[in-house]
């Protein structure tokens, strides 16, 4: 069974350095061109970089596109 379903954990998929998908997130805390902070069940995922865009937003996932420098858990 997939962990993100059983344990209700966020799942982060990163392609190169310009696309990241966060599945099973709780909500958007902050969004601007340099930072995207997403609430999850465990910690806050903070993505920082340049020209960040939210390519799609649904109730289960967020697709962040742009020049990603850092992905942190806060």
């Amino acid at each position: 069974m997939p962990k993100e379903v059983v344990l209700d954990l966020p799942k982060l998929t990163v392609y190169g350095s310009n696309q990241a998908t966060v599945e099973n997130y709780g909500g958007i805390i902050e969004y601007d061109e340099a930072h995207v902070r997403l609430k999850t069940n465990v910690k806050v995922i903070s993505i920082s970089g340049k020209n960040l865009e939210l390519k799609t937003i649904t109730d289960v996932d967020v697709l962040v596109e742009g020049d990603i420098d850092k992905i942190e858990y806060e």
Partner: peptide, 17 residues
């Protein structure tokens, strides 16, 4: 606004500051 939209199933894309 984005959070409420997501929860209500309103699909948003190309969100840009």
């Amino acid at each position: 606004f984005l959070n409420i939209c997501a929860r209500r199933g309103i699909y948003l894309w190309n969100v840009k500051k």
